[in-house]
């Protein structure tokens, strides 16, 4: 009887040690400000404005890539919607001025009362807006990876200099065009 007790105690101890060590070695992503969608990502509704209809196929491919990442599960599900009233992610496009020729796109985050927030702040956000620069974005594969990267910002991921992350910025010479393991891990860390 005491032997069985001893064995059970050993087993419990083993599990405790394993779980503590796995926690310590689990990746803590450095490329997030740790703020996220206040409504979660289980049904992320995205709206494509008529100004961005040129990019519809790139946007749909990017959304599909975040749902099916090739690197295991994450809680993201995305639905295209035709109204902005309850959407999480609104995508617009415009011909930005010449001084923005180096800018592919920009993203902003907002509260449920339509106040803009800082990415390096502490408050979670209700929705995000992406604006794509039509002057810069012409080639289709680049467009998809740019939209995928911007969607990453919407989910709460920050820019990263690691070339094998979709969150690497083109100016830091990103080598990948799709969501990677590290990006998927970060989504799972945030949600």
């Amino acid at each position: 009887m005491s032997k069985i007790k001893k064995n059970i105690s050993c087993l419990i101890l083993f599990f405790i040690i394993v779980s503590i060590s796995s926690c310590a070695f689990a990746m803590t992503p450095t490329y997030t400000h740790a703020i996220r969608y206040s409504r979660g990502v289980g049904n992320t509704c995205y709206y494509v404005d008529s100004s961005a209809s040129f990019f519809t196929s790139s946007i749909n491919s990017a959304a599909n890539n975040w749902v099916h990442t090739d690197y295991g599960a994450n809680p993201i599900y995305m639905t295209a919607v035709s109204s902005t009233k309850a959407s999480h992610m609104d995508i617009y496009a415009g011909y930005l001025l010449d001084k923005y020729n180096n800018t592919n796109a920009y993203t902003t985050i907002w509260t449920s009362s339509a106040t803009q927030l800082y990415f390096n702040g502490t408050s979670n956000y209700y929705y995000a807006e992406i604006v794509l620069n039509r002057n810069n974005m012409t080639a289709n594969t680049e467009n998809t990876s740019t939209v995928t990267h911007e969607m990453g910002h919407c989910f709460g991921l920050d820019d990263w200099t690691y070339a094998y992350s979709i969150m690497c910025s083109p100016k830091s010479e990103r080598k990948v065009t799709r969501v990677q393991q590290c990006d998927n891990d970060t989504v799972n860390y945030l949600y």
């Binding site: 800018t103 920009y106 911007e150």
Partner: peptide, 8 residues
């Protein structure tokens, strides 16, 4: 605050 995506 606006976060931009620079090309180069």
């Amino acid at each position: 605050q606006v976060a931009t995506e620079l090309n180069e």
